[in-house]
Design a protein around this nucleic acid. Sequence first.
RNA 1: GGGCUCGUAGCUCAGCCAGGCAGAGCGACGGGCUUUUAACCCGUCGGUCGCGGGUUCAAAUCCCGUCGAGCCCGCCA
Length: 512
Amino acid sequence: MKIFLKLLHASSAMNDTIHWADVVASELLKRGGKHRIATGITPSGHIHLGNLREMLTADAVRRAVIDDGGKAELIYIADTFDPLRKRYPFLPEKYEEYVGMPLSNIPDPEGCHENYSEHFLQPFLESLEILGIPVRVEKAHEMYRDGRYEEQIKVALKKRDVIARIIHDVTGRELESDWTPFMPFCENCGRINSAKVTGFDENWIYYACQCGHEGKASYSGGGKLTWRVDWAARWKILGITCEPFGKDHAAAGGSYDTGVRLAREVFKIEPPFPVVYEWIHLKGKGAMKSSKGIVVPVREIVEILPPEIIRYLIIRVKPERHIEFDPSMILDVIDDFEDEFRHKTRNVELSLVEDVSYSEVPFRHLIVVGQIANWELEKVLEILQRTYEVDDEVKKDVERRLIYAKKWLEKLAPEAIKFEIKEEIADITAEFNEDEKRFLSAYAEKLSEDMSPERIHQLVYEVAKEIGIKPAKAFQAIYKAILDRSHGPRAGYFIKSLGVNWIKERFRKVAG
RNA sequence: GGGCUCGUAGCUCAGCCAGGCAGAGCGACGGGCUUUUAACCCGUCGGUCGCGGGUUCAAAUCCCGUCGAGCCCGCCA
């Protein structure tokens, strides 16, 4: 047996090591065949790339469980019933008065959605769809309103002392004698963080609010459980078996520690299997935090980068490692992806969005060709046909990724990679010396319609030699005449795709 | 005070769970292709695996300790 294990080890060492998501999946499958994975991001501001890590971590596990023969689904609990903590920098002054009110009761700061939480939630949900993350959405204010918490609220209120002791044991925090695990919603001032429970019976929870109002709250929507208790309660209500969460919750004495004990001792369930993940840092700016305004909204990223790249960016890194997100390095990440794609790695498998095909045309290439072809699909395909076999599948993929290439170029690309064809000769500011003019003129003479791109490229060297200038000078003249700069895409393909006759005419004009 | 992660080639990291000749990519250097946007091909250099102990025939890997970096511990992903 021991020898067998060693052999197994030796042979698996030759391949990639087991993917983290598969490790989690096999752990889960030891516990049962059916899993419900929870995620929970509060829509209190723009939902950013850092938040997305939670979703992608969960989705990678979901897929791994399914690939391993189990069943798994994803649930996203949007805490729409959470109070607005403070007036964030991006909110107008007026929002000071909404602090403490549930997000679902606050107006949309930009007036385009039903309420505050919807404003941030909707674009995020659209993004999840684009990223191929199938998720069942549960909005907290609806769960409470529909009475799904009722039983657990009653349990929590009755076991107030047990809960208080657990929180004290785990965190060392001494709770005040009038503390309860319930935060009533005050029907007078509309806040959900300023009233105290004064008593309860089978039908009502009685409270006194700082605003002076005294009233009674319903078990269905009249308030919510405090964070730590709410978390454990929802595990029970939704039957959660696995949940990824940020390292803040994982610290000793953090909310997962209390959650474990609350789950077992108060709600009588086994806590979900934890997957702890690290923050994503924005290169040079530190951890992404909505509250600090260091944010790349997910909805913007999914417009600029293909979903498989965004997935790959996060899924390829073990959750417990932090990710340094450097927008200027994204082409390298895409290169890595394309290299892994050729080897069909597990990272790629978990990153590709189902039902989306991916061709071998490199993204870098699309960027050059797209610019040459002025982003016209037919023209791009025509150019690609010289190097690739373009069938319907490739065509479909190119059509899809060409849009990203264009957006990426506009929003994230370094200037050096961009170029623009000067339509008018008057737009060219560069000077041409006699050698260059002689070259362009002679080159235009020899160039003919039936030449292949390779032949056109070769011709540059031949003509340059003939009139006695260095090839480098010849290339510079060509690019100056077309782009008004000294560098550009590989000359042969470039000239061919621009049209030989157009080039001949242009070179003659420039040469005077 | 408690907890987590990281420390392996100049840089970014894999390898550690399951001990078995120290790896990849990039960079640098040399050569080929007589500029092509961080192009391609061939080759070379490059590491006391943070440090100190321990276990073992054998340790980057396991155990104990230690130093350094970053982060978390009201709410937050």
